[in-house]
Design a protein around this nucleic acid. Structure first.
Length: 426
DNA sequence: TCTGGGGTCCTAGGACCC
DNA sequence: TCTGGGGTCCTAGGACCC
């Protein structure tokens, strides 16, 4: 049997942990740049219909009149809380697959059948006690079934957030309960298609001929079909895979027209990406830069372009990557537009120790020593304390807007929660 | 005025190899 | 008349996930 453990309204719940004064009150968390709503706790969902991913300016008044509390995204906090949950999960199963920041699969094949439910409750209660975060647990024969069971655990109050599906009969009930758009792996397009041929719930889907599913939904659909029919088709993945591409692209706090500022932002993102490359001991052989105006805007002239270049020798040096990025950026930058976003992506990722130099460009070890030293200094003294001069000092002119960010309670000494004073200010 | 960011996997088709 | 067969690698586009 497999369990899926999922934190409820994860980001909103993380904020609530450190603000006991907000217990029982509606909370929403906003995307980068405070652009739209990406998480809402059950109180916020209950009091008013909050469309997820709606731009906040359209619904701000509605939320304010309902007394909803806003937070900007605080990924430092969420990442660290996530790690705490994972550490606890690892005490409940030797095989844990971390699927996302707030979801993990657990292999429960060693737990006796009649103890599954108690085990599920133990997991839930322990996480709540140790971290303050509420979770739901779904347990079933396959990952996809566990995912559906988890959904049911959340939706049916009687289940107390733990749903075990361990008989043919309960599996059939589960499948009939789950509408087709709620199946993991079936998105908008497939759901529309399936409904048009009268497939409305997961049970209908399992009754389709496999050949049809394979033909129309590729091998991905086939795996889903098998898993929903109780056959294991998606393995647990314990080791986090090395990334195939690393990218970062963030909207500017305000529109930019000046190449210099865009270069700064770009260099900043390169710095982040290169740090990830070095942290996992890899180099990139290709670099993509893209630039775009605000495609939502009706007044602005629109322009978007991207360029990919091969690096002569794969590298993870911030300095080389910035130099190349600037060359690339100059090729696609055009004067006269109000730019919204610049992004960088590195691909063709190879292990650092397999990089081959060539006759004219030997592998530049000295630069990698320099980069690693910079990493160490920044780890100690703070992000971007030592940096390429390209980054300049004008961050304020392009950096993300995060007006409502909560303190980084768990990672910064000067932002620790003060007991007895429940409203710390960042 | 204001609309997120970071990923994965699969397939088809083209270019190329022996 | 009749023009092979078995591969790899790369890219773009589609669909999906949190």
């Amino acid at each position: 049997m497999v369990a899926l453990v999922d934190c409820n309204s994860f980001y909103a719940s993380c904020e609530a942990v450190f603000r006991p004064d907000l217990k029982g009150k509606p909370i929403v968390v906003l995307s980068n740049n405070d652009g739209c709503v990406i998480a809402a706790n059950k109180e916020a969902k209950a009091m008013t219909h909050i469309p997820m991913y709606e731009p906040i300016f359209k619904i701000k008044n509605q939320l304010l009149t309902n007394g909803v509390n806003f937070f900007s995204s605080n990924y430092t906090l969420y990442g660290e809380m996530s790690q705490r949950v994972i550490n606890i999960l690892k005490t409940f199963s030797p095989k844990v697959e971390v699927y996302s920041i707030d979801e993990s699969f657990l292999d429960l094949s060693t737990v006796p059948r009649d103890e599954l439910e108690a085990h599920g409750h133990k997991i839930k209660d322990t996480i709540l006690q140790y971290t303050g975060l509420p979770v739901g647990v779904g347990i079933a024969r396959t990952k996809v079934l566990a995912k559906v069971a988890n959904r049911m655990a959340k939706k049916l109050p009687d289940l107390q957030h733990v749903c075990v599906v361990d008989s043919e009969q309960s599996e059939e009930e589960l499948l009939k309960w789950c509408t087709i758009d709620d199946v993991w792996g079936i998105g908008k397009q497939h759901a529309k298609r399936l409904k048009s041929i009268n497939v409305h719930d997961a049970h209908d889907f399992t009754r389709l001929p496999l050949a049809w599913v394979r033909k129309e939904m590729t091998v991905v659909g086939e795996r889903l079909w098998r898993e929903l029919n109780g056959e294991k088709a998606i393995e647990m993945v314990m080791e986090p895979k090395k990334k195939k591409g690393i990218g970062t692209a963030k909207s500017f706090g305000k529109k930019l027209t000046d190449l210099g500022l865009i270069e700064e932002a770009c260099a900043f993102y390169i710095t982040e990406v290169a740090e990830v490359l070095r942290a996992q001991g890899t180099c990139a052989s290709q670099l993509t830069i893209f630039l775009t105006t605000n495609y939502h805007s009706d007044y602005d002239k629109q322009y978007a372009n991207r360029i990919t270049l091969k690096l002569e020798v794969p590298t993870n040096s911030t300095f080389i990557l910035i130099k190349e990025a600037n060359k690339a950026l100059r090729k696609i930058f055009k004067l006269g537009y109000r730019y919204k976003k610049v992004g960088v992506d590195v691909t063709g990722i190879v292990p650092e120790n397999e990089v081959q130099g060539n006759l004219f460009r030997p592998n530049l070890n000295s630069l990698s020593v320099l980069s690693k030293t910079v990493d160490k200094l920044n780890a100690k003294f703070g992000k971007a304390k030592v940096r390429s001069s390209t980054l300049g000092k004008r961050m304020k002119q392009w950096e993300l807007i995060k007006e409502e960010r909560s303190p980084r309670y768990t990672t910064q000494w000067n932002e620790l929660l003060t007991v007895g004073k429940c409203k710390p200010k960042a």
